[in-house]
Design a protein around this nucleic acid. Structure first.
Length: 734
DNA sequence: AGCACGCCGACT
DNA sequence: GTCGGCGTGCTC
C-alpha cells in the first residue's frame, strides 16, 4: 500500500480560487483517493465539506497554519477520477473557484456531508417482547392496540406507507413502542423499478437508419455528431435506435434535454421503448430523489440517465453515449454563479471518456453548425418528415400594407376563420404574456414604470395587476393616473391575454386555449390544456414560446406569428438566430400527414433575409447569411467572448469597478478589452448593472490573460462594493 | 461566502 | 453605559 502523503490538497466550498492544504487524519494511515469527501475546519470555528484533490509531500503554507482533516466521509470517492478531472478543467475554463464548481456538480445530499449511500426504507417489526404482549394489555389505548394488531398480523414488519391509514398519529405511537422495546426498526433497500419489455422500433426511413448506423459505427471512441433533423423528422427515434445498441453492449447512456423539454411523457416514451429503468434528474426533485437517481447512475445500476443541464455531472462508470437534445436551447447555459454550458461540457466529457455524442436539433446553433462544416463534428441530416406529405407553406404578411386590429391583420383573421369552418385548429404565437406591455395615461402621457428596473410594467387584466417581467414586482392596477389623476389609462400593445380576448370577440363560438406561464402556473394546468387540444376540444391556441418546445399538435393546420419583429434589429448578436429558431420551431408544429399546414408571419420587415430563408424552409441559407454577419462583426463562432459583469445597489459602483478592472489589465496580444458600459437594462431589481466585453480570436491567449486578471480582480478595493462575475462564452450580452 | 473584529450612533 | 450598524480582513 502506498504511503500516506504528508499533506492533502482539499477543495473547499468558498468563492476563493485555489485549494487548501490540510494535514492527514491522525489515526488514519490509509491514503485518501482524490474525489473523497472530508470534513475540514475552515475559518474560525466553521467546519465544511471539502473534496480531496490529491496528496503532496510539500506545502507552501507554513506548518503551524495548517489544520487537520477532521473526518473522512467516504470509503471510496464520490467523484470518479475522470469526472473530477473534467470539473477541474471546467473550473479553469470558466475561471470559477473549484470549490463552487464541485458544489454545483454534487447533489445537495452529498454537498451537505450526508453518507454516500441511499437511506433504505424504514421497516418496523415486533421484538420478542412486543410479540409476547397480551392483546388485553392495550384495551384502553385504541391506537396502540390497532398498531400492535397490525404488526402481529405480518411476519416481516411494516413500512411507513400503509401505517398512515391506521392513524395520523402512528409515528408518535411507534416511538412509544420503540421506547418500551416492543418494536425495533430496520432498513430495507428500496426495490428496483419494474420495467416493461422493450417495444420494437417503428418503421424508420433511410435517413434515420443511416444516421443510427453512423452513430453506432463510432461506439467506443469519441466522435461528435450533429443531428440536424427538421421538426417532425423523427430525431428521437434516431436517439432511441442508437441508445438501444449502446445499452445492448452493456454501457450507460446520458441524455440531456432542455429544462422545459423534460416531461413525464418523454420519460415514459424512453422507458417503454427501451425497457430499462430511467434515472431522471431535474430541478423539481427533492434532495433524496435527486441523490437516488445520481447514485443509481454512479453505482452502474441505472443504464439510462435523462436529465437537464446539471445532469452532465452525473458519474457514470461505463458511459457509452451522450445525447444532447435541442442542443441550441439556451437553458443549457447556466445564467448565474458557475456559468457553464452543459452542451459544451458534454462534448468535452464525451471526448475525455472516449464516447460518441449526438447533438440534435431542427435549428442547430451556429457554433455547432460551424463545427460540422469545419469537419470537427460529423453532420447527419434528416430532411424528411415521415408520413407527412409536405412542409407547411410559409407566407409573409406585410404590415406596411395591412391594417392591424387588436394586433391581427385581415388575412390572418380570414385564415383563422377558414380553419374554424373546416373544423381544424389554429395556433397563434405571440411571445409576450400579459394583456399589454405598456399602460399609458392619455391625459399626460405617463406610462407605468417598474420602481426597481428600467422597464415598463406589463398590464395583466386577469389579475388586475401591473407586473414587472424582469424582477417580478407586482402592484394593483391604479384607478387613476398617479401623475395627473386622470382616468384615461389605456393598455398599449398586445400580449397573449389581449390576443385571447380579441379572438373571443371576433370568433365568439370558437374554443380558445391560452398557453403561457400565467395560464399554466397551476399544477397539471398545462397537461390539461394540451389534452384538450389533442382531443379536439380546442379551436384556437394562443401562446408564448412555451408552444414552441416539444409539443406536437397534429390537427393544427395554421400557425400565425403575430409579431415576428421583436429582436430583428436588436443589439443582441444572437437575437436573429433566436428569432429564426423560434419561428421555425413553432412553424414545425403545423400540419401532419394528410393535413398540410400553413404559416403566416406578420412583419414590418418582409425584405429581411431571415424571412426569405424562412419562406424557403432554408435553414442552411439562413445559416450562411448569419455566419457571414458574425464573421464580419467578429462575433462567435469566429471569435471568443468573455463578459465581465458587475452590479451594485449603488449607481456608479459597478462602472467604477469595471474601470478599475480595465486599468488593471495588461493588454495581451490578440485580446481586446472594450470599454465598460452600462448594461442594456441598466437597473434591474434595484441594482445598477454594467459590463465589460473581452474579445479574442484565439482561446489560448484569452485564457492565459483571464487567469491572472480574475485573481487580481478579487483584490481590487472596488470589488468590495459590487457583485461581479465572469461569463465565459456568454449566451447574451445583457 | 461566512465569520470576527472594530469603531461610531440610538436605546433597554 | 451597551446593542448593532457595516467596512475590513481572513480562511490551509
Amino acid at each position: 500500500m502506498a504511503a500516506e502523503p504528508r499533506y492533502y490538497q482539499i477543495a473547499v466550498p468558498s468563492p476563493l480560487f485555489g485549494h487548501f492544504d490540510y494535514l492527514p487524519l491522525r489515526e488514519n494511515p490509509v491514503p485518501l483517493t482524490p474525489g473523497t469527501r472530508v470534513r475540514v475546519p475552515f475559518g474560525r470555528g466553521r467546519e465544511v465539506t471539502g473534496v480531496v484533490l490529491g496528496g503532496s509531500a510539500h506545502s507552501a503554507v507554513p506548518r503551524h497554519k495548517l489544520k487537520r482533516i477532521a473526518r473522512v466521509l467516504d470509503d471510496s470517492p464520490v467523484l470518479p477520477a475522470t469526472l473530477l478531472a473534467l470539473l477541474r478543467w471546467a473550473a479553469d475554463y470558466y475561471h470559477h473557484p473549484l470549490g463552487e464548481v464541485l458544489a454545483t456538480a454534487l447533489p445537495a445530499w452529498l454537498r451537505e456531508g450526508r453518507p454516500a449511500r441511499l437511506p433504505g426504507v424504514p421497516v418496523w417489526h415486533l421484538t420478542d417482547a412486543g410479540r409476547a404482549l397480551e392483546s388485553s394489555a392495550l384495551t384502553r389505548a385504541p391506537v396502540q392496540r390497532r398498531l400492535w394488531e397490525a404488526l402481529v398480523a405480518v411476519t416481516d414488519g411494516l413500512e411507513a406507507e400503509p401505517l398512515g391509514e391506521l392513524s395520523t398519529r402512528w409515528r408518535e405511537v411507534m416511538a412509544i413502542f420503540e421506547e418500551r422495546g416492543w418494536v425495533a426498526r430496520h432498513e430495507r433497500r428500496a426495490e428496483s423499478e419494474v420495467v416493461p419489455a422493450p417495444q420494437p422500433a417503428p418503421p424508420l426511413n433511410a435517413a434515420q437508419t443511416g444516421a443510427i448506423a453512423e452513430i453506432t459505427g463510432a461506439l467506443d471512441r469519441y466522435q461528435c455528431f450533429l443531428l440536424h433533423g427538421i421538426t417532425g423528422s423523427g430525431k428521437t427515434e434516431v436517439y432511441l435506435g442508437a441508445i438501444e445498441k449502446v445499452l445492448a453492449s452493456n454501457k450507460q447512456v446520458l441524455v440531456l434535454v432542455p429544462e422545459i423539454g423534460l416531461t413525464p411523457q418523454l420519460v415514459e416514451r424512453f422507458r417503454r421503448r427501451l425497457g430499462v429503468p430511467v434515472a431522471v434528474l431535474h430541478s423539481g426533485l427533492t434532495d433524496t430523489q435527486r441523490f437516488a437517481a445520481w447514485s443509481g447512475a454512479a453505482e452502474d445500476k441505472a443504464p439510462l440517465v435523462l436529465g437537464t443541464r446539471s445532469a452532465v455531472f452525473t458519474p457514470m462508470p461505463r458511459l457509452g453515449l451522450i445525447v444532447v437534445d435541442e442542443e441550441h436551447d439556451a437553458s443549457y447555459k447556466q445564467q448565474e454563479g458557475f456559468r457553464y454550458s452543459a452542451r459544451d461540457l458534454a462534448v468535452l466529457r464525451a471526448a475525455r471518456e472516449k464516447a460518441p455524442i449526438v447533438l440534435g436539433s431542427a435549428t442547430p446553433s451556429l457554433e455547432s453548425l460551424k463545427n460540422a462544416r469545419d469537419g470537427s463534428y460529423r453532420l447527419l441530416e434528416l430532411p424528411e418528415r415521415p408520413g407527412a406529405a409536405e412542409l407547411p407553406v410559409v407566407r409573409l404578411l406585410d404590415l406596411r400594407k395591412l391594417a392591424l386590429d387588436d394586433g391581427l391583420s385581415a388575412p390572418l383573421r380570414a385564415a383563422v376563420a377558414e380553419r374554424l369552418k373546416r373544423g381544424e385548429q389554429s395556433l397563434l404565437f405571440l411571445n409576450r404574456r400579459g394583456f399589454a406591455p405598456v399602460l399609458m395615461c392619455y391625459g399626460c402621457g405617463w406610462v407605468a414604470p417598474c420602481r426597481r428596473c428600467d422597464a415598463r410594467l406589463t398590464y395583466h387584466q386577469r389579475s388586475s395587476k401591473l407586473i414587472c417581467h424582469h424582477c417580478g414586482a407586482e402592484q394593483l392596477l391604479p384607478e387613476k393616473c398617479p401623475n395627473c389623476a386622470g382616468a384615461e389609462l389605456h393598455p398599449i400593445g398586445e400580449g397573449t391575454e389581449r390576443l385571447e380576448s380579441a379572438l373571443a370577440k371576433i370568433f365568439p363560438k370558437a374554443r380558445l386555449v391560452r398557453i403561457d406561464r400565467d395560464s399554466t402556473a397551476a399544477r397539471g394546468a398545462l397537461e390539461g390544456k394540451l389534452k384538450a387540444v389533442h382531443e379536439g376540444r380546442a379551436d384556437i391556441l394562443v401562446g408564448t414560446q412555451m408552444l414552441t418546445k416539444g409539443h406536437d399538435f397534429p390537427n393544427v393546420t395554421l400557425v400565425g406569428v403575430v409579431n415576428a419583429d421583436q429582436g430583428l434589429y436588436s443589439a443582441e448578436f444572437r437575437a436573429a438566430e433566436r428569432l429564426f429558431q423560434q419561428i421555425l420551431q413553432v412553424a414545425g408544429r403545423a400540419g401532419r400527414a394528410d393535413k398540410p399546414g400553413e404559416v403566416l408571419i406578420q412583419t414590418w420587415h418582409p425584405d429581411h433575409p431571415l424571412f426569405a430563408a424562412l419562406v424557403r424552409h432554408d435553414f442552411n441559407g439562413f445559416a450562411d447569411y448569419a455566419l457571414a454577419e458574425r464573421s464580419e462583426a467578429g462575433f462567435p463562432p469566429y471569435s471568443h467572448l468573455v463578459l465581465l459583469r458587475a452590479e451594485s445597489p449603488d449607481r456608479g459602483a459597478a462602472l467604477g469597478f469595471l474601470r478599475a478592472a480595465r486599468a488593471k489589465a495588461e493588454t495581451p496580444n490578440g485580446v481586446q478589452l472594450m470599454d465598460p458600459v452600462p448594461s442594456p437594462m441598466e437597473r434591474r431589481a434595484g441594482r445598477w448593472r454594467a459590463q465589460l466585453l473581452v474579445q479574442s480570436a484565439k482561446r489560448a491567449p484569452l485564457h492565459e490573460f483571464l487567469d491572472g486578471w480574475v485573481r487580481a480582480l478579487g483584490a481590487l478595493k472596488q470589488a468590495r462594493r459590487v457583485r461581479w462575475s465572469l461569463d465565459v462564452d456568454p449566451a447574451d450580452l445583457f
